[in-house]
Amino acid sequence: MVEVMYFAWVRERIGEPREQVDTNAATVADLVEELRAREERYAVAFSDLSALRVALDQELADFDAPLAGVREVAFFPPMTGG
């Protein structure tokens, strides 16, 4: 099980800020494929990965990063701090 979190418009499109996901996905990209296949709202949120960023256990990562041992996955748009 991993805790999957969504921020900003990703959260709005999916309709919730976080959820527990039962997955055996090897990489972030594999997890995204599983989520996309679930429902239309996920397919919409994950339609363009170039518009998304991912963090694994609160560290920025790439979509081909392995999920082994990861507890928290977060998806969000490019950050706009400052």
């Binding site: 921020f7 900003a8 977060a74 969000f76 950050m79 701090g81 400052g82």
Partner: peptide, 14 residues
Amino acid sequence: LMDYLKSRAPFWKK
């Protein structure tokens, strides 16, 4: 610090 806060600190403005 300003350059990094803009693009690498997880904040989103609406």
